[in-house]
Amino acid sequence: MGPVVVAEGLDLTFRTNDGPVQALSDVSLSVAPGEFVSFIGPSGCGKTTFLRCVAALETPTGGRLSVNGMSADAARKARAYGYVFQAAGLYPWRTIGGNVRLPLEIMGFPRAEQDRRVKDVLELVELSGFEKKFPWQLSGGMQQRASIARALAFDADLLLMDEPFGALDEIVRDRLNEELLGLWGRTGKTMLFVTHSIPEAVYLSTKIVVMSPRPGRIAEVIESPLPRERPLDIRDSAAFLEIAHRVREGLRAGHAYEG
């Protein structure tokens, strides 16, 4: 199988009222099937923009980008990926079950298949029994889990996650990280994951992409030697701390450019 995502010399310049802003500059990256790739960097480093390019929510102004061997927009139309946003963004007029069902309705799954999938993915994110609740009746962590279930419902092989746990507290975040790893292990999906947190990136990833701002570019790509099976206490191991240190150094080096 070929790589899932290939970017070559990707550029994106936004036209704003204050003149052009270069959000991405010469970004090249290849993601193999089943990898868990984290993007880390300060605000404005283009990590979210890159994810949005892969999702065809933004159009690059230069370079080449392919997703599943086709253009990003063709991949979007082929429903190649599930996207998890920073906020859960559940529709308040739909129940949790109804929200998870939304993509299935749009993609025209038969009714019985919809029921089965909603039940399955809610079980996967441990929200069974909350199907008939409305989003505002659930905590922030549970809402974000529901939004992950919604992205999983149609079983795309690629999952794009934009700081999905950024707004949650440390304890909930740890739990969801652990659950996400388990989910990745069971499903073998390819993950692209944007984060602000060094421990989160190191704990989750097989590959960590360190980015730096103005213009947004890749400063360093770190391959993680950690095993795929990762208990939470792996975060105290020497190997873990070593990678975290390298990520921190990479981030610092990226900043040094600015002067």
């Binding site: 429903r79 996207y83 906020a87 529709y91 749009i106």
Partner: peptide, 26 residues
């Protein structure tokens, strides 16, 4: 409807009518 909610419909490759009926009218 917020930009994020509309982006969500785009990631599903939803049609104009689907976005209208399932997001913008509600």
């Amino acid at each position: 409807a917020s930009a994020m909610q509309k982006d969500l419909m785009r990631t599903y490759a939803a049609s104009y009518l689907q976005t209208l009926l399932k997001l913008r009218l509600p």
